[in-house]
Structures are given as structure tokens and as C-alpha cells.
Amino acid sequence: MTRTPEHTVIVAHQFENLEQQFDADLLGMWLFLVTEALLFSGAFLALAVYYHQYYDTFSAAARELHWLLAGANSVILLTSGLAVALAEQAADQGRRRAALLGLLATIALGLVFLAIKGYEYHSEYQAGLMPFLQQPFAYDGPNPHNAALFYNFYFVLTGLHAAHMIIGLAVLMVMAVLTWRWRDGARVARQVRIAGLYWAFVDIVWVLVYCSLYLVGR
């Protein structure tokens, strides 16, 4: 490890300097996000194949979803993306309070998103549109068997996204605590930047989930 005299910056022995270490950190996060993208791509590919095969049934099933409520959720998530980007910028500039506010706003918006998503799931449960957990499937449109496949895709994709959001929220809460303590501002800025990458990825996945599940069939 190397310590520079002007800052208590710790660089791992395999790196020449802090910049190289941070570049490696960013690259590592991007590589992780690529594996996540491939995970979601498999699900989107299967959805695309079955959408092509059962277009009319899938479109009819998609029209039962709360597309405007999910549209409002899209606005909320995009706003949280802006908030975390501003938090990263504030942390980078050493503005602890602004960074903390940005992170807390992001967490609050993420929780509102999940609450609205929970309401959606609840109303779909009440309407009998959950074709699993031994629930009676009460869809009254054409080809309920194929429509059940659409709802399976819907719950898998939105559930997988929500799971990623919960992980992202946990990471952001840790970042908020680290920002609150502010023991090493430069290090906190680097950590917030990497956490922000994950949250932006969650944003990207939602944009694609919203378009493919809620809008394509309309």
C-alpha cells in the first residue's frame, strides 16, 4: 500500500496510483453490469419470441396493466436517476450536505416507486391476474392460457427489477451513512459514483421493462 503525504489516500499494492485504482473500480462495476444486462436480455428475448408468437393475446393482456400508474413510476425513477447523478457530482466537489440530500432524495423516490409497484401487484392480485402461488387465474380475455404466460413474464421481469431496486436502495443507504460520516471525502465520492452506476442501470432496465410490457401492446 502507498500513502501520499498530503492525503491519507490508501492505494492497493497492485495499482500504480489512485487514478488507476479508481479506473479499475469503475471497470469492475461496468463488467458486473454487463452480466446483469445479459441476465435481463435473456428474459427480454424470451418475451420478444412469445410476443411475436402470440401478439394479439399478449397485447390484450398488456392492456389490463396500470400503464399510466407505471408511467408515473417511470417519472419517479427518472427523477431518482437525476438525484443520484447530482449527489455524485456534489460528493465529487466535496459538498457533503448536498450529496447527502441527493442520496436521501434518491432513496425516498425509490421507496415511493416500490410502494406504487406494490399497489399495482395488490390490485392485480385482487383482479385474479396472478397465474401462480395456487391463485385462480381470472383473466376474461381471449386465450387465457397464453395470457397467463404474459403475466408470468410481467411478474418475473418487474419482480426481478424490484429485487434489483431493493439491492440498490440498500447500497444507497450505506452510501448515505458513509456520506453522513464523511471520514474521507474523496473516497466517499468514488464510492457514491460506483453506487450511482448501479442505480442508473436500474433506471435503464425499468425504461425497457415499461416499454416492452406496458406500451408495446397498446
Binding site: 437525476l82 447523478a85 442501470f201 435503464i204 425504461v207 425497457l208 416492452s212
Partner: peptide
């Protein structure tokens, strides 16, 4: 899909 892809590109190039 094109509009969604544009949104993804904006998020990746700006926020990421």
C-alpha cells in the same frame, strides 16, 4: 422501441 432505446442511450451517456 426506438424512443426507449434513445432514453437508454441518454441515461448511459449522461447519468452513467
Amino acid at each position: 422501441l426506438a424512443v426507449a432505446a434513445t432514453m437508454v442511450a441518454v441515461i448511459a451517456t449522461t447519468f452513467m
